[in-house]
């Protein structure tokens, strides 16, 4: 069955003078999914997101959201969209509660129930003044404002920067939103974050889309790097399984990349006395190198 598309970007190009913001980018976000939008700083994530919200004019291409034209029907679209900007300021010298109520009123809503529960879960004090907030608390205000209106689509531009416990709570909130049928499109420059929360990921680099993939597939393809330090001798052969690559020995440590069959590796490790162990997700740059090396970069290969 064809998935209902919430965001449909077709051949989007945005130029800033001679500088390319985004080039010929096509991407769809399906209803009910959490789509991660991954790329290093300056890759064009914010440009794409802000084009969807008609904050930027397009140089070329089409964007439809809920089947509506992103520019012509922008106001209608925004009635059903919550948005957390990557960088934003608050109205100074008002209480957070008044500020959020004001934003609610701009959305034509007066129900503060969800605002209250979100603030409570994120431990945001609504009685503080907006100009007295720390960076983390400001981000919480941003998160609450993007979710409190209970819109069908939530767009978030790099919603990271909370402390680890709060970040986990934030992910739980997002998963609950998803269960209620919400569609979430969030950008990040952190692969681990995208892996932990998203169903699919679109990777962008230098204004061009490199790949769109299911998270499981991506994880299989890229794998994770395991480094083990032993207290006893070992052979590389012991760890040669299907789904394990790049096995090598370095200074008495074992280094390998696991794509699947983590279980087999763990079992093999249990025969040894282990001093230290480290499982690493690839950094974004390593991920790109991998994609380039494997020739899956498509048109992005000229970079």
């Amino acid at each position: 069955m064809e998935q209902e598309k919430v965001i449909e970007i077709t051949n989007l190009t945005k130029m800033y003078g001679n500088h390319v913001g985004v080039k010929d980018l096509s991407l769809t976000v399906d209803k009910g999914e959490i789509m991660g939008f991954l790329g290093p700083n300056g890759a064009g994530k914010t440009t794409t997101i802000r084009s969807c919200l008609a904050l930027l004019t397009k140089t070329a291409g089409e964007i439809t959201i809920f089947g509506l034209d992103s520019h012509r029907d922008s106001v209608t679209i925004r009635k059903r969209t919550g948005y957390l900007p990557g960088d934003f300021g608050l109205i100074p010298s008002v209480k957070v509660r008044s500020y959020l109520k004001y934003l609610l009123s701009l959305h034509g809503s007066s129900s503060t129930k969800k605002m209250g529960s979100l603030a409570e879960r994120l431990q945001l004090d609504l009685d503080r003044k907006t100009n007295e907030l720390s960076k983390g608390n400001k981000l919480k205000v941003g998160i609450v404002q993007s979710l409190m209106t209970d819109e069908d689509l939530i767009i978030m531009d790099e919603p990271s920067g909370l402390d680890p416990l709060m970040q986990q709570e934030f992910y739980r909130i997002l998963r609950q939103e998803q269960k209620q049928g919400k569609t979430i499109f969030m950008s990040s420059h952190n692969l681990a974050e995208v892996e932990s929360i998203c169903n699919r990921v679109a990777i962008i680099r230098k204004g061009q889309l490199i790949v769109v993939e299911n998270i499981e597939v991506l994880q299989k393809k890229t794998g994770k790097v395991l480094e083990v330090e032993f207290n006893d001798p070992f052979k590389i052969d012991e760890f040669t399984f299907k789904g394990v690559s790049n096995i090598r020995q370095d200074n008495g440590r074992l280094i390998l990349t696991i794509h699947e069959n983590l279980d087999n590796v763990i079992k093999a490790l249990s025969n040894h006395q282990i001093l230290n162990m480290n499982l690493k997700t690839y950094s974004l740059e390593q991920l790109f190198l991998k994609y380039y090396a494997e020739g899956e970069v498509g048109e992005g290969g000229d970079a």
Binding site: R50, L53, A54, L55, S74, V75, T76, R78, K79, T81, G82, Y83, P85, D87, F88, G89, L90, I91, P92, L103, L106, H107, G108, G142, Q145, S146
Partner: peptide, 14 residues
């Protein structure tokens, strides 16, 4: 200057 436009125009305000 204070980057309030993004939040303003995420509301259905033309």
């Amino acid at each position: 200057e204070n980057k309030r436009m993004d939040v303003m125009f995420s509301a259905p305000i033309s």
